[in-house]
Amino acid sequence: MTLEHVLLVSGIIFAIGLYGVLSRRNTISLLMSLELMFNAVVIAAVAFSRFTPPAGLADGGIVTANEVRAALTGHVLAVFIIAVAAAESALALALIFALYRTKETVEITDVAEMRR
């Protein structure tokens, strides 16, 4: 298990999610594929946090506690991404419900009023 391996797995999951977003018509499927892409990005963030040292540690000099703490910035980023993704999915599902109530459909190909 090296950084490259984890990044490869993250890239595969991202590509699968991208394929889902591009190829599905159902908005709920789109949302699920989007969540897969979010997860892939979070894996990459945590992997970088795990395998690479903060710049302050790598360039030598006095080691301060702030530099050491910076090693966990990736984890903080991951928590932020998860929070935003959860808010986004709740809002997206509300939008899908509104769409279903007004147009009786959840297929994106049926929602094309703004396309000319």
């Binding site: 890239g11 595969i12 991202f14 590509a15 699968i16 991208l18 394929y19 591009l22 190829s23 599905r24 018509r25 159902n26 709920i28 499927s29 899908i96 419900f97 279903y100 009786e104 459909t105 959840v106 297929e107 190909t109």
Partner: peptide, 26 residues
């Protein structure tokens, strides 16, 4: 709660484009 899903999720026309784009990104 959305009964429309009973006909499942059909792929759209851009399927091969989607495969190509995802493979390139990967």
């Amino acid at each position: 709660m959305i009964s429309d899903v009973s006909h499942g999720s059909q792929p759209n026309r851009g399927r091969y484009v989607a495969v190509t784009v995802s493979a390139l990104v990967l």
